[in-house]
Each structure stands twice: as C-alpha cells, then as structure tokens.
C-alpha cells in the first residue's frame, strides 16, 4: 500500500517538474527564439563549409545530430540556470521529494524540446541538402529520433545537474558530455543515413543502430535515476 502511495507521489512530482519546465519554455520561448535559429544557422554554416550538394546529402545525418548535440548544451545550461538562479533546485531538494522523479520530469521535458528541434532540423535537411526518405525510412527516422533524444535527455539532465551552479559550467558541461554522447552521435547518424539512404546505406542497417540507442537510453535512464540525487545533493 505504502509502495503504491510512493509511486503515485513520484509520478506526480515527475509530471509537475515536466509541466513546469515546458511552461517556462512556453513563456520564455528561448528554444523557439534562440536555440532553433542557432541550430538552423549551424545547418547553413555546414553548407557553406562543405560547399558540395553530393557531400551534404551524404553527411546530412551527421550534421543533423551534431547540430542537435550543440543545441543540447544550450538547452541544458539554460534549464539548470533557471533552477539554480533562485535556488529552486535547493528548494526541491530540501522539500524531501524523490530526486529521481525530478530527474525523470526534467529529462522528458528536455527530450520533448529536442524532438521539436529535430523536426525542424530534419525539415531543414530536406530543404537545404535535398535528402529524401521513403515511408519505411520515415518509420526508422521517427524511432531513431525518439530513442536518441530520450538518451540525450537523460545524460543532459544528469550532467547538467552536476555542473549546475558551479564555476566554469559552460566549459565543463561539453567536456563531460561529449565523450558520453559519442555513442548517440555514431548510432543516430548511421540510423539517419540508413533512413535517408545516404551512400547506399540499407534501411535494415539502421534498426541495429536504433537498438544501440535504446540500450543507451535504458542504461542512462536507470543510472541517472540512481545518480542524480547524490550528484546534486549538497
């Protein structure tokens, strides 16, 4: 009975944190007004740098996910800057609520923002890089985006919590996060290339990479739920 009450409390906290983060974003519009244009600019700058339609089509998958990871740093730092500026994170901690629920709520909110970002980035790839996708490829692409952004949401929240409120967090976060997200970059890029058929990649090759993305998300979902409390605990 007690366990059921605790579970309900946990899901309630997670959904409250999730709604709070999305409501802050809806009111401030930082992702839509700043991060999206930034990610779009990265896509344009890559086109300037590579300056070849065939090369851009070939590497479109990698460029989408690099732009996503660069944007992840900004979204995570912004999210935790709000939480630490008025000691909101400290208030959540001393309130005695389950910190794994806070982790879950923040991670899902972050994943949802990344999904919105990826929809725009993929649309930009269609327009700017002239990539094409079949219906089966689209199913692979959507699954890939969901799995990859879930994993990125978990690790982003975990390491964002660690660096929140510390000096030099702007430089420390990429240093800690980039090695961790390397498997996501490799797997999501290959799966996206398979969905686009870039370089003759078969769609069947992409599903194995989606499996790796799902394992990554599961590992850091469980690991993050256990580690988030000790990491932000004073």
């Amino acid at each position: 009975m007690k366990k059921t009450v605790k579970k309900t409390g946990r899901s309630r906290v997670a959904s409250a944190v999730f709604i709070k983060d999305l409501r802050i974003e809806a009111r401030s519009r930082v992702v839509t007004n700043q991060v999206l244009p930034f990610a779009g600019l990265i896509m344009v700058m890559f086109a300037f740098a590579l300056d070849n339609d065939d090369v851009l089509q070939r590497v479109a998958g990698g460029l989408i996910w690099l732009a996503t990871i660069f944007s992840l740093f900004i979204i995570v730092q912004r999210s935790f800057a709000i939480d630490t500026s008025d000691s909101a994170l400290d208030s959540l901690r001393v309130a005695g609520i389950d910190l794994s629920a806070v982790f879950l709520g923040k991670s899902i909110a972050l994943s949802l923002q990344l999904i919105a970002l990826d929809v725009v980035l993929i649309a930009a790839a269609f327009l700017l890089y002239q990539v094409q996708v079949s219906v089966i490829g689209l199913v692979l692409l959507v699954t890939c985006v969901i799995c990859a952004t879930t994993g990125l949401g978990f690790v982003g929240t975990l390491y964002g919590g660690l660096t929140a409120g510390t000096n030099g967090r702007e430089t420390l976060l990429p240093l800690l996060l980039l090695p961790v997200v390397a498997p996501v970059l490799i797997a999501a890029t290959r799966a996206t290339e398979a969905a686009f058929g870039s370089g003759g990649a078969a769609i069947s090759e992409g599903w194995a990479w989606v499996g790796l993305l799902a394992i990554f998300a599961a590992v850091f979902g469980v690991g993050g739920s256990l580690a988030f409390g000790p990491l932000i605990d004073e």
Partner: peptide
C-alpha cells in the same frame, strides 16, 4: 568525493557503450 565517485561509476557504464559503438562502426 561524492560527485567524482558518481562520475567514475558512470564512466564504467559509458566506456563499454563507446567501445561497442566504435567496434560496430568500424566493422562497416
């Protein structure tokens, strides 16, 4: 001590995933 211990344990999770993804990547 607490932060670095957690990071060290997370690295234990991370390294096999990095290794496996790179092995899989290089196999192609």
């Amino acid at each position: 001590a607490r932060r670095s211990a957690v990071i060290a344990l997370l690295a234990v999770l991370e390294i096999p995933l990095v290794h496996f993804s790179v092995v899989f990547w290089r196999s192609l």
